[in-house]
C-alpha cells in the first residue's frame, strides 16, 4: 500500500521501570516512524521491550513503576509526552487505539457486547442511544461479524476467542483512529482464525488508511502484513527496513541469526543454526553492543562502545559497527 505522511514518530524514547531488582531500561532510546496507510512490524524476543514501547505511546505504562524519562512521541506532529492524563483520555480510542493479545483483558465480562460498543462510541460521538446502537451494529458488520443485531446482545463469555477479538477490533477502530497499535493480537487464536483476522485488519487499514504498529515475534505474520519492520533487542531498535529487503538481506548479525533460526515449512532442513546464550537482563546492560556476548563478529570495540546507527539502504538502517564500512546508498 502506498504510504502517506508520518502519523506517529518516536524520537529517542526512554522508559524505565523501577523494580526491586533495579531500574529496568525497558525502552532505551527507541526511534521509529509509521506513516498513514502503512504497517510497521515491531519484532524481537520476549522481554526486549515491545509492549513497554506500545504502552509508553499510549502513556499507559504500569504504575507506579513505569516512567518515560526522555524522548518524544509525536502523533501527527504533536508531542504526547507532556500531555496530562485528562488530555490523553481524549486521545486514546479516538486518535490512537490498541488491540491486546488477550481479548479477555479488553472486554468487560459483566456488560453485553452492544453495551460496550455503545460506550466506546459515546466517547467520541454524541447522539441518542438508538442511533449509537445502529452505529454499533454497523461497527460489528465492518469486522465481518454475522448477524450483528443478535450479537450485540451477547456477553463476552458466549463468544469464541476469534469473535471476541473481532469485537475488540470493532471497538478499537470505531474512532476511527489514525494510529492502531496491535500487540500480538492473534497469538491466542487458532491458525485458521488468525488468517481471517489479519485479512480483516488489512481491509480496515485499506478503508481508513490508519497507520499500524504491529507487535509480534512471528516472522510469518511480518512477511504477510508488514510494509516495514523494526527489530528490537534489549530495549533498542537494532535494525529497520522495508520488509522485503530485511528478509532478503538482513544486515544486523542479530537479525541474520534470528532469520536463520526460524524453521521453515516450505523446505526441509537437517539442522537449524541456533543462537547460543540469551539476551542480557535490562537492569544490567553491558556497556557496548548488547548483542556482543552472542555475536560471532564481536571485537574489542563492540564490547566497549554501543554502535551508531548506519544507513545500509533506502530506509534501511542497522546499529552495528560492521555496517559502518558498508556502502550506504
Amino acid at each position: 500500500m502506498s504510504a502517506g505522511p508520518v502519523l506517529l514518530e518516536l524520537r529517542d524514547l526512554h522508559a524505565h521501570l523501577s523494580t526491586r531488582w533495579g531500574v529496568v531500561r525497558a525502552v532505551d532510546g527507541v526511534s521509529l516512524t509509521v506513516r498513514e496507510g502503512e504497517t510497521l512490524g515491531l519484532v524481537g524476543e520476549s522481554g526486549c521491550g515491545k509492549t513497554m514501547t506500545a504502552l509508553s505511546i499510549l502513556r499507559l505504562l504500569p504504575q507506579p513503576a513505569g516512567r518515560i524519562v526522555a524522548g518524544q512521541i509525536l502523533l501527527e506532529g504533536e508531542d504526547l509526552v507532556p500531555k496530562s492524563e485528562r488530555q490523553m483520555r481524549r486521545i486514546r480510542g479516538r486518535r490512537i487505539s490498541m488491540i491486546l493479545q488477550d481479548p479477555q483483558t479488553s472486554l468487560n465480562p459483566v456488560f453485553s457486547v452492544g453495551n460496550q460498543l455503545v460506550e466506546a462510541l459515546r466517547v467520541h460521538r454524541a447522539g441518542p442511544r438508538r442511533r449509537l446502537r445502529a452505529l454499533a451494529q454497523e461497527a460489528l458488520r465492518q469486522v465481518r461479524v454475522a448477524a450483528p443485531a443478535q450479537r450485540l446482545r451477547d456477553f463476552p463469555h458466549q463468544m469464541s476467542g476469534g469473535m471476541k477479538q473481532r469485537v475488540v477490533g470493532a471497538i478499537a477502530v470505531s474512532g476511527p483512529p489514525r494510529v492502531l497499535i496491535a500487540d500480538e493480537p492473534t497469538t491466542a487464536l487458532d491458525v485458521t482464525i488468525q488468517l481471517q483476522y489479519l485479512t480483516l485488519l488489512e481491509e480496515i487499514q485499506e478503508r481508513t488508511r490508519l497507520a499500524m504498529l504491529f507487535i509480534t515475534h512471528d516472522f510469518g505474520i511480518v512477511a504477510r502484513i508488514c510494509d516495514r519492520v523494526a527489530v528490537m533487542y534489549a530495549g533498542r531498535i537494532v535494525e529497520s527496513g522495508p520488509t522485503r529487503e530485511l528478509f532478503a538481506a538482513p544486515r544486523h548479525p542479530y537479525t541474520q541469526a534470528l532469520m536463520a533460526a526460524v524453521p521453515r515449512m516450505d523446505e526441509s532442513v537437517e539442522r537449524l543454526p541456533a543462537i547460543d546464550g540469551q539476551p542480557p537482563a535490562l537492569q544490567r546492560l553491558p556497556p557496548g553492543c548488547r548483542f556482543a556476548p552472542r555475536c560471532r563478529h564481536a571485537d574489542d570495540r563492540c564490547q566497549r562502545e554501543y554502535p551508531a546507527v548506519f544507513a545500509v539502504g533506502r530506509e534501511h538502517e542497522a546499529a552495528c559497527w560492521r555496517a559502518e564500512s558498508s556502502p550506504s546508498r
Binding site: V191, L195, G220, A223, R224, F247
Partner: peptide
C-alpha cells in the same frame, strides 16, 4: 486449509 493458513516467513 491448515497449510494455506500457515504464514511462511517469506514475503
Amino acid at each position: 486449509a491448515l497449510f494455506a493458513a500457515a504464514l511462511p516467513a517469506n514475503p
